[in-house]
Simulated assay, not measured.
Amino acid sequence: MANLTKLDAFQLDVLREVGNIGAGHAATALSQLIQKNIDMRVPQVNIIPFDEIAEFVGGPEEVVVSVFLRVEGDCPGNMFFIIDLQSARNMLSELLGLEPKDEGEPLSEIEVSALREIGNILAGSYLSSLADFTKLAMQPSVPALAIDMAGALLSHGLTQLGQVGDYALTIDTLFFEGSKAVQGHFSLIPDPGSFEKLFTSLGVPFDGNY
């Protein structure tokens, strides 16, 4: 089994470039959607073991908002966009001009719809960037949105989506709009065997001996 956590700087730079292009596409799409300028960047790209994702986003008991979907095609896998609940509230306030709600107050139907659309745009933008870079066919399923503790949400989402790979490609996403920076986490969890195809298509050496 390859240890993908030991990728070198060049390999991570290639993945970061894919993430930055995806962030640029997403920023353009969101700007058009809400008629506001939005800056986004990717400060960090990591490959982490699947079972560490919940810790990566704040811990298994952290309440988060997640948009998740299944990726089919040449490089099948599962995709998540995860953001903690307070950051989601801040993002809605900044992007939509909504008054921030008190902690514990449930999100309205329009807020949930907006988060689903934002997550859909982000996931679609990153997936399109990967497909353009790799020339691999990657088709997303209809996205679903859930609000729950990170551990439960990941387990349930992956149960719904299908088989689970050993590693996740995680791309931090920073939104700069207004005075508050909001951080979200994009995770692609390729099915077993898909990481090798992904790296080979990117022109990145992959011999399984990391």
Rank of each mutant, 00 (worst) to 15 (best):
N3V: 10
L4D: 05
L7A: 10
D8H: 09
R16G: 06
G19Q: 01
I21W: 05
G22Y: 07
G22P: 03
G22F: 03
A23Q: 02
H25N: 15
H25S: 13
A27G: 07
S31N: 09
Q32S: 11
N37M: 13
D39A: 12
M40R: 06
M40N: 01
V42I: 15
Q44A: 13
V45Y: 03
N46R: 13
N46A: 14
N46Q: 12
N46C: 11
P49M: 09
F50Y: 14
F50A: 12
F50E: 11
F50P: 00
D51M: 10
E52K: 13
A54C: 11
E55I: 11
E55P: 00
F56P: 04
V57A: 09
G58M: 10
E61V: 12
E61R: 11
V63Y: 06
V64H: 03
V64D: 04
V65I: 14
S66H: 06
F68V: 09
F68S: 12
E72H: 08
G73Y: 02
G73D: 03
C75E: 09
G77K: 06
N78S: 14
M79I: 14
M79Q: 13
F81I: 04
I83T: 09
L85M: 12
R89Y: 10
N90P: 01
M91W: 12
M91V: 07
L92D: 02
S93P: 04
E94R: 11
L95E: 01
P100D: 00
D102M: 10
E103C: 07
G104L: 04
P106R: 00
P106I: 05
V112P: 00
V112T: 14
A114T: 12
A114G: 02
A114D: 05
L115W: 05
L115A: 04
E117F: 02
E117R: 01
I118F: 07
N120Y: 02
I121W: 01
I121R: 02
L122D: 01
S125C: 09
L127H: 04
S129N: 08
T134M: 07
K135H: 11
A137I: 11
Q139M: 14
S141D: 10
V142C: 03
V142P: 07
A144G: 06
I147G: 03
I147N: 00
A150Y: 05
G151K: 01
A152N: 12
L153R: 03
L153Q: 00
G157N: 03
L158S: 13
Q160L: 15
L161P: 00
L161M: 15
G162A: 06
G162L: 06
G162P: 03
G162V: 06
G165W: 00
Y167F: 15
I171F: 06
I171D: 06
D172G: 11
T173W: 06
L174T: 13
L174H: 14
F176Y: 09
G178A: 02
G178W: 08
K180N: 11
V182M: 05
V182F: 06
Q183M: 15
Q183H: 09
G184C: 07
H185G: 07
H185Y: 15
L188H: 08
L188K: 04
G193D: 00
G193K: 03
F195H: 05
F195A: 08
E196D: 13
K197W: 07
L198I: 14
L198H: 02
L202I: 05
L202N: 00
L202C: 10
G203Q: 07
G203W: 04
P205G: 00
F206D: 01
D207G: 08
G208K: 02
N209K: 15
N209H: 15
